[in-house]
Design a protein around this nucleic acid. Structure first.
Lengths: 208, 208
DNA sequence: TGACCCGCTAAGCAACCGCTCACCTCGCGG
DNA sequence: CCGCGAGGTGAGCGGTTGCTTAGCGGGTCA
């Protein structure tokens, strides 16, 4: 937030905070490899090769292969959480904020679907401590969405019999975008975001 | 369909068609292991161990570890497809059939979430030929749901601006149940199915 | 009874994995 | 001009992997 040019989520320049340069190149290579083949099917030689380095170079910047996944998961989740909270904290009715939250959250999962896939589907490869940390971040996501829905219900904007279940379904819908996006093609992240925002407003019974 | 006692989908007795007994035990063990740790993180020794056999016994019934995954994926997808098509082919309005399709499809993904997880998330571990076969099965799922929605729109029951996108979202929502189910706990497959059927009817703008 | 064969095991092979270590290169302060 | 530390490499170690092979026990049938 130091300059006015930075936009929320840094969607154009991810990993900008990772230094030095070689460490960032390795991390980007790992994201690509993990997203393509999965964590366990990816070798350290493959990661180093994509970054144009020898296999041993990886261990100068990261202690283990798991630390790479841990770093990716933490940064990725923090970016997604930031996107969500920015939308949730904006001004407007619950209807407007829920639509904006879904739109931007989905746009992130579609645009950064390679990062999102790693973050969402390789969680089990982490050790107990690292996994617990990531799960805690994820719970803050859930709480953010649930609060908007609860406010909408309290304000009479929404008609939701089961708030917890509906929150779960909304987040599930958004997250699963990372799985199928680009497999189908022909839709931009913006289009998917707009479609999903509309669908979610229908799910909570918001009047249009 | 030889006896009246068999129910659609065989939810109580899956893998009943797999013989001989040792082959079925290995397959069940593989499903558990793949669902817990993922395909690549599972060793053939682990699978054989769970089935109470030596590592070499696996290769009497299956040529490779990948053939195990292929068999699981094919049978699992066929079961899910059968559940969907049974609901889609029943009598009633498009609204009733869509609700029943979502209810039973979600119930299957929740109840058989260990199978579903393997089937949905380990697809990339298959070779090109096997993957193409599974993807074809999946397209029949998409078509089944899309047809119900199209019929509902034609009959004036639904209000859906983007049929393809909404179909994608509905299926995405159902499939992702396999990822989070049992992680949260406290909800039965029937309850999740009922909740999701309601949410999907809202998504397509069906009058209640 | 005894030859046969099917299902299974014990042992092990070649390849590959994550990771380490001894060594090299090169910009830079004194 | 030299020493030095940060960043990088080539080679390789111990362990594990998917899979193979030689052989064994115990039902089956002439």
């Amino acid at each position: 937030m130091s300059t006015a040019e930075e936009t929320a989520g840094d969607e154009a320049q991810p990993w900008g905070e990772v230094t030095p340069d070689a460490a960032r190149r390795l991390l980007v290579a790992a994201v690509e490899a993990f997203a393509e083949r999965g964590y366990h099917a990816t070798t350290t030689r493959d990661i180093a090769g994509r970054a144009g380095m020898s296999p041993a170079a990886l261990y100068i910047h990261y202690r283990t292969k798991e630390e790479l996944l841990h770093r990716i998961s933490r940064i990725g989740h923090e970016k997604a959480l930031e996107v969500l909270r920015t939308a949730a904290g904006s001004e407007g009715t619950a209807t407007e904020r829920l639509a904006e939250a879904v739109r931007s959250f989905v746009r992130w999962h579609a645009g950064q679907h390679t990062v999102a896939r790693v973050v969402q589907y390789e969680l089990d490869a982490l050790g107990p401590d690292a996994r617990a940390e990531i799960v805690a971040l994820r719970r803050r996501n859930d709480a953010t969405v649930r609060e908007i829905i609860e406010e909408g219900v309290a304000a009479g904007e929404f008609d939701v019999p089961d708030v917890r279940g509906t929150t779960l379904a909304v987040l599930s819908l958004c997250i699963d975008v990372a799985r199928w996006f680009n497999a189908a093609g022909a839709r931009t992240p913006d289009e998917v975001g707009a479609l999903y925002a509309d669908l979610v407003l229908r799910m909570v019974g918001a009047q249009k």
